[in-house]
Write a protein that binds this DNA or RNA. Structure first.
Length: 372
DNA sequence: TAACCGTGGAC
DNA sequence: TGTCCAAGGTT
């Protein structure tokens, strides 16, 4: 990090020129039209590990559906998750809902207005707490995200690993030592510069408002900074998906309350070694005593942050089951479903699948199975 | 500390 | 197609 006493002019550039640039260059984003802490909170949670352009339609829909912390707290978790469908990292939505209920229960719906209160809420860590506190309440705290780590590393020509906790800590302290009164604007300006100009690849240095103070630009090291450990690549898992159809209804299972895609709806799915459809048929035996042999439908591949599913999709028909009658069109047919699975399965016709919060891994199978 | 936790965009 | 990675938090 630069010594702030010996480099006063470099600090001035970072503060003044960056803020001036931000006034005219900042994007016109929906959550920049307000200082409402609730709206800023929603936008910051959605922005975690998500590009801004991706979240904008989600943000507008979410605020329309849950305009304040009261309405969010009063909603069902299913409705909140459904509003999050497609955004990923679904624990963000569950934490959001939990935090809303806490705010209503503990402080009558009054939004916490200080950093140290905000980070006590589930889903709000150092970055998000700093962002809300500085942007909505202009508290003098930093909001250090990936953009800020990259911008400051380059500006100071720092080769410290930005993934290391001690780097984040020293960077946070350094920024707070130079934080101007307009803390929220400054935090946003650093992020905006990182998103628009000081990009990870091919930074647009010739357009950069603080280029003349940038120590990696003058050293020719912008392409080596930031230093970051490579993350290990995903492991591949062979999976079998079972499509069970009854009277036009498709069989869905709610996933467990923890782990990957927790609480979301899914088609029955099982890891397999053989890949002949019998592993998923065995799992389906927990629900249905009699099933047809698996019928190959198709294949699909889905990439998560740390896992790749190579899915083979099989169709099954029920044979001689209770509930295959017109007057009980989508009934749960298995009599011996274990108690912990009660209410966690259902049949849905293809036309009504949109009622369920379905992860992309499964919703992209719908075209595959439409003719089954 | 490092694994876990989704999805889509950019190149 | 492969690779990186994005306004991170939790455990």
């Amino acid at each position: 990090m630069l010594n702030t006493d010996n480099n006063r002019h470099l600090i001035n550039i970072l503060q003044l020129d960056l803020l001036n640039w931000f006034k005219t260059a900042k994007r016109n984003l929906p959550f920049r039209q307000t200082k409402d802490p609730y709206s800023i909170w929603i936008s910051e949670i959605m922005a975690q590990q998500t590009q801004i352009d991706t979240l904008i339609p989600y943000y507008n829909r979410f605020i329309d559906r849950f305009p304040d912390v009261i309405s969010l707290a009063a909603a069902s978790e299913d409705d909140v998750i459904k509003a999050w469908e497609g955004l990923g990292y679904y624990s963000r939505a569950r934490n959001l809902h939990q935090a809303a209920k806490m705010i209503v229960a503990d402080s009558n719906g009054i939004f916490p207005n200080r950093f140290d209160q905000l980070i006590k809420l589930p889903g709000i860590g150092p970055y998000t707490g700093g962002a809300i506190a500085s942007i909505a309440f202009n508290e003098k705290v930093s909001a250090v995200d990936g953009n800020v780590l990259r911008v400051i590393s380059r500006y100071c020509n720092s080769f410290d690993d930005i993934g290391a906790a001690k780097t984040k800590k020293s960077m946070t302290q350094w920024i707070e030592s130079i934080l101007p009164a307009a803390a929220g604007d400054f935090n946003e300006a650093l992020m905006e510069l990182g998103a628009l100009v000081c990009t990870p690849q091919s930074p647009k240095c010739l357009l950069c408002p603080i280029r003349c103070g940038c120590q990696s630009f003058s050293s020719g090291t912008t392409d080596q900074i930031p230093v970051k450990k490579k993350k290990q690549k995903q492991i591949t898992k062979k999976m079998e998906v079972g499509i069970v159809k009854q009277n036009g209804g498709l069989f869905f299972i709610r996933r467990p309350e923890s782990g990957l895609l927790s609480g979301m709806w899914s088609f029955p799915i099982a890891e397999t070694a053989a890949g002949n459809g019998n592993d998923i048929k065995k799992k389906l035996g927990d629900y249905f005593p009699a099933l047809s042999d698996p019928v190959f439908i198709g294949e699909s591949r889905h990439v998560f942050s740390h896992i790749i599913w190579e899915m083979t999709v099989y169709g099954f028909n029920l044979a001689g089951m209770v509930g295959e009658t017109a007057d009980i069109p989508y009934a749960q047919t298995a009599a011996d479903v274990s108690e912990d699975q009660t209410g966690r399965t259902q049949f849905k016709p293809l036309s009504a699948v949109d009622d369920l919060a379905l992860p992309i891994a499964f919703s992209k199978l719908l075209t595959l199975i439409k003719d089954f």
